[in-house]
Amino acid sequence: MLLESITGRSVLFLHENQTLVDWATGIHTNRRNVKEIIDPRLEDNYSLQSGSECFSLAVRCVSNNPVDRPSSEEVLQNLERIHALYK
């Protein structure tokens, strides 16, 4: 859900025969510009640092390895921290 919220794309989104998760993971690995990833409808109502941190958190949430995924509590704590630092 976090990945969909940040990118503005549906989980059913396909790009070059990739799912949203595959696409996002590939972008995260290549460290593309955050502006290419984040939903343009957010109209720059975020800092690049907060956008980057939220995207990294979202990618962790969809990790293939369950051990690498943050708990719901960790996700909430990270989002609250990001909000407090960059509002």
Rank of each mutant, 00 (worst) to 15 (best):
I27N: 01
L14F: 02
E4M: 12
P40M: 03
E16I: 04
S10N: 09
K87D: 12
V62F: 06
T19E: 11
G8V: 13
E74I: 03
K87M: 13
L48H: 08
L42N: 04
R41T: 09
S10R: 13
R32G: 02
C54P: 05
E4A: 14
M1E: 11
V67R: 05
T7E: 03
V67G: 00
R69M: 03
E4S: 14
P40H: 11
S52I: 00
L2Q: 07
V62W: 06
Q49M: 06
E74S: 10
S72T: 13
K35H: 12
L85S: 10
R9M: 11
R31C: 04
I82A: 04
H83L: 15
D44P: 00
E73P: 00
R9A: 02
S5C: 09
E4V: 14
L14Y: 06
S47Q: 14
Y86W: 15
S63M: 04
E73F: 09
Y46P: 08
L48D: 14
P66L: 13
N17P: 01
S50Y: 10
G26S: 13
R81E: 05
T19N: 06
C61P: 03
H15Y: 13
S52W: 08
L48W: 03
L76T: 05
H15A: 09
S10W: 01
L79C: 06
S72Y: 08
